[in-house]
Amino acid sequence: MKKNIIKIENLKREFVMGNETVRALKGISFSVEEGEFVTIMGTSGSGKSTLLNILGCLDKPTVGSYEIDNVPVSNLSKNELAHLRNEKIGFIFQSYNLLPRTTALENVELPLMYNASVSSRERRERALEALRLVGLSKRIHHTPNQLSGGQQQRVAIARALVNNPVLILADEATGNLDTRTSYEIMALFQELNAKGKTIAFVTHEPDIALFSRRTIVLRDGHITKDYPVENIADAALALAQLPKEEELEANS
């Protein structure tokens, strides 16, 4: 049996706002094994963002347990959580969150700056390798404003890969991209997953979910569906099938 990367049991998250208690997650349980590609779907208000924060070790559950790579997070301090994020999680955001006026290489190096055990030489080598993986070897000295949206997201993916995380956590990673570039990014995710990376992809777009292997649907703080995707779509194939004129537009 493969080891669990994510293990959540009866997880609840409540926020106290004034006199009211908002129950964002009302007791959910699921596990994700190493090498899985999971899509977490849900409309706004479903508790999707709250779950994402907890999965990303930015937040802690009120009740229940969450273990990432067999490390329970409930009792960890802020600094220990930061350390855990640095070692085990790669974040990818809808709006890329790259540092402006900073080269792709330096952006990718960033997580390793917070890891004292990585030398500057190793940092550089690993950043170059990550950029090569996402196909941006020729753009390492470009700053974000010299890169297209798709390229910026690739830099962000490289940044998420550079610390060899056990979990890549993508938050609406294709939300700001056109269809064609979205497919390109999904193809990259599929490629990374094929290489054994565990990916959790949070989105509200059902067609994106088709590219993953498993879908978890959240609604009102509960998991309503959790099923393996049949007929997984091949993003590379979908990309090839896109009409030509769109290709022109996307590249213009």
Binding site: L58, K78, H83, F91
Partner: peptide, 14 residues
């Protein structure tokens, strides 16, 4: 946002 990002990738408050 930069601060948020730095924290997300492992930057501690300190």
């Amino acid at each position: 946002r930069e601060i948020g990002l730095r924290m997300a990738v492992g930057g501690r408050g300190r």
